[in-house]
Design a protein around this nucleic acid. Structure first.
Lengths: 204, 204
DNA sequence: GTCTATATTGCGATAGAC
DNA sequence: GTCTATCGCAATATAGAC
């Protein structure tokens, strides 16, 4: 695809690189392929990027911050601990589906980052997991959820959303709202929340 | 590590390659690193392997067959549809934890295979998923499970086990039996199986 | 079966003309 | 900001001596 004036060459490079990194992986993607997708020669890329790794970092960089922002916004909903958890889970699942390619890259290419950059990303992920864990513990303390192990419940939410990011494409058998509703029910069922299905159906 | 007479050079190459592919990824691992781990020079590897991709194929090749075998053996347990599902889930989770490195490689490096080999692997995964889906549907028809969507329930089981394979290491906070018990409870809870926790605790 | 040496290819990155 | 041309390097894979 050729860069248009609307999105700018640098942005076009990031988007095409994200597509290719998603499809083939970071190491298996050459900058010559990225350049070709944008409609440039290799050398011209370096007018817009510092290096290949920096390009990956740009792509991976914002996504966890965006995820945390989305969760902190979702938790501000009115209601009890389950209402808050439901709201955050819906945001969590929606985010992973809508930004599936970046999420997938963020998980698969952690190994491709140098040590410093990788630890920054891991630290942010941990912060996000602790945020979710707090919501699970709140629900347990309030007597609204039967918590087996808060960390494992969070792992479960993360695993489900990560998996969705690996297969979700718009226009499939179910639309995004249906998928979010089903997985939210699964999450509440895992916590033995009373009337889990009905709560989600009411909310949707 | 140097090859010992006990395991043979070819086997040592596969094991060391699996470790490196797991840690760094297939593309980021050079055959020089593999050779060095085994205690050989690069050229000598070719007395034992055909090519780098064939080495990957050898590593990925057997694992899905082994997984299917494990499931077909587990389903032969006596009992109702939930007993069978429980048994298969326990085998499923145990397998993913015990062979975490190969499982992780099998998922992460699908993209690194050429078209033909990749489709063989994908077809076998689909066969495995259909097997699990049948068990979920059986439990639903028997009135023992409240099935929302059989395919999504299977995706959930796959997602959880795949995630476990990315973090499980022996000697952590929980032992394998505890982890399997918790995740089996989560799975039965997702299906609203009556007395889910008690069933698992009895079984263990 | 191991080694050293090398063929060949493709990579990321740079230089300089336009 | 684009292009062509090229540098320096590391990759997979092979050849041939021991």
């Amino acid at each position: 695809m050729v860069a248009t004036a609307e999105r700018g060459t640098a942005q076009a490079i990031r988007e095409e690189a994200a597509k290719l990194f998603f499809e083939r992986g970071y190491d298996a993607t050459s900058l010559r392929q990225v350049a070709s997708a944008v409609g440039l020669m290799v050398g011209s890329l370096y007018n817009h990027i510092d290096s290949k790794e920096h390009l990956l970092l740009q792509i991976m960089g914002g996504i966890i911050d965006d995820l945390l922002d989305s969760a902190r916004k979702a938790v501000m909903v009115d209601g009890d601990a389950i209402d808050k958890l439901e709201s955050v889970l819906a945001a969590h699942l929606t985010f992973h589906a809508e930004r599936a390619q970046e999420v997938f890259i963020g998980n698969a290419e952690l190994r491709s980052l140098s040590d410093g950059a990788r630890h920054v990303v891991i630290e942010k992920r941990h912060e996000y997991e602790l945020f979710l864990q707090g919501l699970v513990e709140d629900a347990g303390r309030a007597g609204l959820a039967d918590v087996i192990d808060a960390k494992i419940h969070v792992y479960s939410f993360v695993a489900q959303a990560t998996h969705i990011a690996s297969w979700f494409k718009p226009g499939g058998r179910m639309n995004l709202d249906e998928i979010v509703a089903i997985y939210t029910k699964l999450a509440l069922r895992e916590l033995k929340v009373a009337d889990a299905d009905a709560r989600v159906d009411q909310r949707g």
